[in-house]
Design a protein around this nucleic acid. Structure first.
Ligand SMILES: [Mn+2]
Ligand SMILES: [Mn+2]
Ligand SMILES: [Mn+2]
Ligand SMILES: [Mn+2]
Lengths: 144, 144
DNA sequence: TTTATAATTTAGCCTTGGCTTAGTTTATAC
DNA sequence: GTATAAACTAAGCCAAGGCTAAATTATAAA
């Protein structure tokens, strides 16, 4: 039972914000993965990006073309993928947020598997304020 | 710095799961809103659904046609929207999950505005296990 | 060094979920 | 009871992000 409805424009603004977040999700997940591949494998190949994202190679290829168009990556045809400075910055930021959410879930007693799964989606919808609250709780827990 | 990469198929499965969640997001948000409109206004009109979702009427109309096709709502042309039993069940489930996430954020000290904003996105990526952990913390906090 | 395999791209298809513009129906006001 | 306004639908466009099938390029093996 809902007795009152939220303010129309504020509710609309929230849904709009979630839609904005969805637009940047693919970008964040891709640059984070590319950065991980580079740091572990020395390079990021399309075949690995595709298999780790769980999509076909043509799908990954098309997404990477968008990322290149938008200035996050660059690459020569048939060669591996590099991050631009902008891409590297976004990767670092995304990984940090992802890690905080993951560690937070572990801290409140969620299993490692569930924490991995849920943080992959939640990370894109956590504001700086909420992230700060998460960090505080992680810190408090570590200090015991 | 990432020293090791996660298992390929497990990582892929997590991304696939997030993509699955995205597919049901619109449905969950719509049926929850429709149910709220019915319980407060007595009926759910397209014009209100559109303005509260922050989209144009044609966009809402098309989405509702999909929901009808998929068995969540029904309606006659130019008339208000009704939930099927399946739609009502999903609305209840969605609202409950949404409410738990919202209350949880308040509990850990996030402001009401940020909690409203973040819960609108997070709700769709929270597993039953995480939801249980959230509920436990809310309960603990209420008991003081 | 040729040949086979693996990686990548190209082309073309689909659904979702946005939009605008224009037409139709319903409700309201006079 | 008719005119106007509001609500809704129809048509058509677009981008993102999935897919398959086929062509191309690069790499590895014989
Ligand atoms: Mn991430
Ligand atoms: Mn993610
Ligand atoms: Mn909700
Ligand atoms: Mn939502």
């Amino acid at each position: 039972m809902v007795r009152t409805l939220p303010n129309v424009s504020e509710q609309a603004a929230r849904f709009t914000l979630v839609r904005e977040a969805h637009k940047t999700e693919a970008t964040e997940d891709y640059v984070e993965l590319i950065d991980d591949l580079i740091s572990v494998n020395g390079e990021a190949r399309l075949v690995d990006i595709a298999s780790r994202m769980g999509v076909t190679q043509p799908t990954a290829s098309k997404t990477l073309a968008r990322l290149q168009r938008d200035g996050y990556v660059n690459s020569e045809p048939y060669r591996s993928i590099f991050l631009t400075q902008m891409g590297k910055d976004l990767a670092d930021e995304s990984r940090f947020k992802h890690e905080v959410v993951f560690q937070f879930l572990l801290t409140i007693g969620v299993s490692k598997e569930a924490a991995k799964r849920d943080s992959e989606g939640m990370e894109h919808h956590v504001s700086d304020e909420t992230l700060k609250a998460f960090k505080k709780i992680i810190r408090k827990h570590q200090a015991r």
